[in-house]
Amino acid sequence: MEAKRINPNIDRSEKVITIRGLKKAFDDFEVLRGVDLDLYKGENLVVLGRSGTGKSVLIKIISGLLQADEGTVNVLGKEVSGLKPREMDALRLKIGFSFQNSALYDSMTVRENLEFPLERHAKHMTVAEREDTIQYVLEAVGLLQAINQMPSELSGGQRKRIGIARTLILKPDIMLYDEPTAGLDPITCIEINSLINEVQEKFNTSSIIITHDLTCARAVGDRIVMLLDGQFQREGTFDEVFESNDERVQSFYNYNFID
């Protein structure tokens, strides 16, 4: 198992995301039942939970892809539900969203995927500056050689890395990772975990990592919250979260670690 890192960059005096009483239901199924959450500057927060418990819904509400039914979501001092489309776009430039299946634009090369946000939101950049930025983020994720490849030519791990590079290109303050290690082999999972930590250190981002992979949670999480029955039932470091007699928590642990 990967060793737990110690993150010196957390600033507990500054909250970048504050969520209070968040509720969300789909038809009659209530996914989130009053969620409270704080994310501090420079922190890697892992949200653990079984599939279908609303983990992804949570970060989709934070990024404005879904609307909350009740509650408040404050991101970088702005109340998400009250924002006009233009204000929402301005806020989204400060949020990077890494999708579960990478969501690379498959009709574009890696270079075009990275150029796409720059062309729209960094119009002041010269062609040379754009090229430098693209090369910089590709180097940061260790895939400079893939610059002219199509997404279909990349492996799952490489696609994840390019997806992260695309979100980093606009230098976001907050990173939201949706199942970053899902569907990857153990070695690639370790590489992605290291990349998440490197991104935090190099770009000084605050991150929410959605996962059900405990190896990932242990390797990248400064703090871990566990979503059970639509609410955060456990919170703390990895060891604190799993020091519990709750059968649901223990079964989750045992299922992940046979050792």
Binding site: K60, S63, G64, L65, D89, A90, R92, L93, I95, F97, F99, Q100, N101, A103, L104, Y105, D106, S107, F116, P117, R120, H121, R166, T167, L170
Partner: peptide, 19 residues
């Protein structure tokens, strides 16, 4: 094309990148 972009979250990816 748009259907596959929708189900592979490429449309959502555009939206969250403020496009």
């Amino acid at each position: 094309e748009l259907g596959s972009m929708r189900v592979t979250e490429q449309i959502d990816a555009m939206e969250v990148s403020a496009t």
